[in-house]
């Protein structure tokens, strides 16, 4: 590729970006949510199975993949409702919908659950010009899979999960090792990317909620039958824009999940970063019941402006940075 000094986004798009950031800040200011600013470099990193951190060699530091741990420590310290707009970094994520460095909006609401936070996400979307009169759709993960993948994600057998992507025009993944081949979540993730996600939120955005407990990440698990993670995602025109949790506040359970994720990584020869023990301490010191959500601002801008890829929303995407 020929080196090009010019920005990937048009000046018009950069102006729209500035206005979007202004609208977001005005929204939270009017609602009494405090803007915070936490470190990008940390001595700890996420151990999430499918999110890779950039390591800064020599310094023993990691670039954060989300401001979640630091913001939760502020919540435990009594900050009240807080939001942050910051760049986050995820190694290996690049494509039409991904850039290894992207702008995230993350906020937390003490005393709220994930349904109440969905109301506020919807209000923010309307404030920046997304959606018309119709209320955003709310679909459970189970209902979305029944509708768009033709199966029940909780009860379908492995064989059915493996056949479903092919029946929907997605080539069967090749070269899977045995533990991955038997991993239900791998097949659910592929179905989500290939069949379910692209059909969500056409025109009017759609919330997906109550995920399988195996995909709880940092969400609470509600002991229904089957148990579900109190987690939601927002889709608009087939694109995932936000992910939120009714946040896990149990220090012991949080430690158990971190250790399990580290074990999973170790078994597969992946990087095993140190997790933030400060977060465990903060949860133990009295973490407020709360809900939190992270939203990809570049993707939101891409959809608002009808742009073909993320690079067209960024002053300089990773190929130009």
């Amino acid at each position: 590729m020929k080196p090009d000094w010019r920005p990937g986004a048009s000046l018009e798009t950069l102006k729209a970006r500035a206005e979007l950031l202004g609208s977001i800040r005005a929204f939270f200011h009017a609602r009494g949510v405090m803007e915070v600013d936490t470190p990008i470099l940390s001595r700890h990193a996420t151990v999430d199975r499918h999110i890779e951190s950039f390591h800064v060699p020599g310094a023993g530091l990691w670039l954060h993949t989300s401001p979640e741990f630091a913001m939760k420590r502020l919540l435990a310290a009594g900050s009240g409702p807080i939001y942050q707009l910051c760049h986050v970094f995820r190694a290996e994520e690049a494509g039409r919908w991904h850039n290894p460095e992207f702008l995230m909006l993350e906020w937390y609401r003490p005393g709220w659950d994930h349904h109440r936070l969905m109301d506020e996400v919807e209000a923010l979307m309307r404030a920046v010009g997304v959606g018309r009169e119709a209320a955003f759709e709310r679909l459970s993960y189970r209902e979305a899979f029944r509708r768009h993948a033709g199966l029940d994600p909780f009860s379908a057998g492995l064989a059915e999960l493996r056949e479903a992507p092919v029946r929907r025009g997605c080539a069967l993944p090749e070269g899977l090792a045995e533990p991955d081949f038997a991993d239900r979540d791998l097949w659910l993730d592929l179905l989500m990317s290939a069949a379910v996600g692209p059909r969500l939120g056409g025109g009017t955005p759609c919330f997906l909620y109550d995920f399988p407990a195996s995909q709880s990440a940092l969400a609470r698990v509600r002991l229904d039958d089957p148990p579900v993670a109190e987690r939601f995602e927002l889709f608009w025109n087939g694109t995932e824009l936000a992910n939120g949790f009714h946040e896990l506040g149990d220090a012991a359970e949080q430690r158990r999940r971190f250790e399990a994720d580290r074990g999973w990584r170790r078994e597969r020869g992946r990087a095993v970063p140190p997790y933030d023990a400060n977060l465990i301490s903060a949860l133990g010191a009295g973490f407020p019941d709360c809900a939190g959500v992270a939203l990809g601002v570049d993707r939101l801008l891409m959809l608002l402006r009808g742009l073909p890829d993320l690079a067209a929303t960024l002053a300089f995407d990773s190929a130009r940075a």
Partner: peptide, 28 residues
């Protein structure tokens, strides 16, 4: 490149067989 935010990443790739010219799809 497709990846749910918290999920597993795949590449859905179209490739052309240079001997036959046929285009096929792969998921890796």
């Amino acid at each position: 490149y497709v990846k749910p935010g918290k999920g597993q990443a795949f590449n859905r790739v179209k490739i052309r067989n240079l001997k036959t010219g046929r285009v096929i799809e792969k998921t890796w």
